[in-house]
């Protein structure tokens, strides 16, 4: 298990390194950042001064290393637009997106696991048909549209929930559903398919031959095997939710990372865009790492090669 963890950590770090190079290059591929900061009307001297001020005149490798070194200690530079430390901005925005992401994944799993399991126990039953219907609708419905419908129904007509801001937990209800709902169909169908396979597997037949209870067969013998692919896909879905949160946060004016990312992109606020890209990518890598480690705990075939 230790060797496995070290190996996975190493490859995660390698991935992060590649991402940081890519993120850094983004800024310089997009054009001369000095011109972007100075604006269209600036004189050649102004641009030269800005270039020297931000260190854009140094060799690229040197700039990258300097940026990396600062990023490692949590210094992502200052926002061009807000003239505020990017790290401070991230510190206030990140928790909002994290709460949203975790509750959305929790929502997706809370819906998809029970439905998938029940559907697998009774394939082609009414509950299986209904959950299949939900899956098709869920996969076909664009998040932004679903979010707007919820705002109209629960926010404006029924007035049950606030439609914007992040003042209380109630502000997170609709964004959580909007973001989590999109991941539900894939997880539900995966659970159902995995459970059907597991229930027809030889080892479940052995468990039945041993006279074990239905509870033990379902939750001890079948479910643990089903969870292995579900964990991997959950990590991917959670990563997709981080990007999905850009749309959802925008709609509900929930001022998290996604909202900030959109704002910074519109304003060409490069240090902010770079930092957000790096943070989201780092989260993605972290999620994959967590999923790998969790799977190694669940499945001895991964742990003991």
């Amino acid at each position: 298990m230790l060797t496995f963890t070290i190996k996975r950590l190493f490859s995660a770090l390698l991935t992060l390194l590649l991402i940081s190079i890519f993120t850094f290059s983004l800024a310089h591929l997009a054009g001369d950042p000095a011109i972007a900061i100075a604006g269209r009307e600036a004189s050649a001297e102004d641009i030269a001064r800005i270039r020297a001020h931000y260190g854009f005149d140094r060799p690229l490798v040197q700039q990258y290393l300097a940026w990396c070194g600062q990023a490692l200690v949590g210094d992502f530079g200052r926002s061009y637009h807000y003239q505020q430390a990017v790290s401070e901005m991230l510190a206030t925005r990140l928790p909002i997106t994290l709460i949203l992401g975790i509750s959305a994944l929790g929502f997706a799993l809370a819906i998809s696991l029970p439905l998938g399991i029940v559907a697998a126990i009774r394939p082609n039953s009414l509950i299986d048909r209904i959950s299949l219907g939900l899956a098709v609708v869920g996969q076909a419905m664009p998040t932004f549209w679903f979010a707007l419908v919820m705002i109209v129904v629960f926010g404006l007509t029924l007035r049950w929930l606030p439609i914007s801001g992040n003042a209380s937990w109630q502000n997170f209800v609709m964004p959580t559903i909007a973001l989590g709902y999109f991941a539900t169909p894939a997880l539900m169908r995966l659970t159902r398919a995995g459970m059907i396979d597991a229930l027809e597997s030889d080892f479940v037949r052995t468990a039945r031959a041993k006279g074990l209870s239905q509870t033990s067969i379902l939750f001890k013998h079948a479910l643990r095997n089903v969870m292995i692919p579900v964990v991997s896909v959950s990590a991917v879905q959670c990563g997709a939710m981080l990007s999905g949160s850009i749309v959802v946060e925008q709609i509900f004016a929930l001022q998290g990372i996604g909202w900030l990312g959109y704002d910074a992109t519109v304003r060409s606020d490069l240090p902010v865009v770079q930092a957000i890209t790096l943070v989201i990518a780092a989260f993605y890598v972290l999620l994959t790492l967590l999923a790998d480690l969790l799977n190694a705990v669940l499945d001895p075939r991964i742990r003991i090669g």
């Binding site: 597997s201 030889d202 080892f203 037949r205 052995t206 468990a207 031959a209 001890k220 013998h221 643990r224 095997n225 669940l298 499945d299 001895p300 075939r301």
Partner: peptide, 13 residues
């Protein structure tokens, strides 16, 4: 059973 390779649950000792 006939299939010793698949008749045991892979995730338990």
């Amino acid at each position: 059973f006939q299939e010793p390779m698949t008749s045991l649950n892979p995730v338990y000792t």
